[in-house]
């Protein structure tokens, strides 16, 4: 039996400080059949909108004022402190570096989409979070979608998830964007 996604049944929250990118994402969503899409212009407004609007899917940029997209994700993933910590989060970012993708994943992002954005790529991410959702994992230092997409029966090494149950994800104060970019 085959499934497809009826996007008209889903409510979206778009968080991006660039008004033009918000318009583009909204236009794409409307093309998919989405009827309800709310916008927020920074991470703080995004978090407020998240608690009051209860979206089914969050689409967020990374680099934004007040809270960036990774901080926003960490706050949403505080398992006992917010309406729906399981909400799928699709990050749309100009960052293409592997370590950035891993950082977003470790904050609890479900899907990462490198700009430029395309209709097909965004649709694929939506289909992925709706039709093939991964379970959530909680360890001492992580709460978010299972970071393994595939089970490797031959994997026999240490596992990140054996970090122990604790207080869930933590909000971590991070240096500014230039400092973060320094890797040497």
């Amino acid at each position: 039996m085959m499934y497809s996604v009826d996007c008209s049944r889903l409510r979206f929250l778009i968080v991006d400080d660039n008004i033009h990118m918000r318009r583009i994402i909204r236009a794409l969503l409307h093309g998919f059949g989405v009827r309800e899409a709310h916008e927020a212009e920074d991470g703080a407004a995004g978090l407020e909108a998240f608690t009051s609007y209860s979206p089914d899917i969050v689409i967020t940029d990374w680099a934004m004022p007040i809270f960036d997209g990774v901080e926003l994700t960490r706050m949403i993933r505080q398992a006992d402190a917010i309406a729906n910590p399981f909400v799928p989060i699709i990050m749309v970012s100009g960052y293409a570096e592997r370590r950035k993708v891993l950082e977003a994943r470790d904050a609890g992002v479900n899907e990462f989409l490198v700009k430029p954005i395309s209709a097909k790529a965004l649709y694929q991410r939506i289909v992925s979070v709706v039709l093939t959702p991964r379970p959530y994992i909680r360890t001492k230092t992580f709460f978010g979608p299972d970071r393994r997409r595939n089970i490797n029966p031959n994997y026999n090494d240490e596992e990140r998830r054996n970090e122990g149950i604790g207080t869930g994800a933590q909000i971590i104060e991070r240096p500014n964007i230039i400092d973060k970019g320094q890797s040497r």
Binding site: M2, Y3, S4, C7, D56, V130, P133, P135, R138, T139
Partner: peptide, 19 residues
């Protein structure tokens, strides 16, 4: 040392359609 958590209601319940 860890928990596997599965939401009781998923978006598949809400928006998946047969095709």
């Amino acid at each position: 040392s860890y928990e596997i958590i599965r939401p009781r209601i998923t978006l598949k319940d809400k928006a998946a359609i047969y095709t």
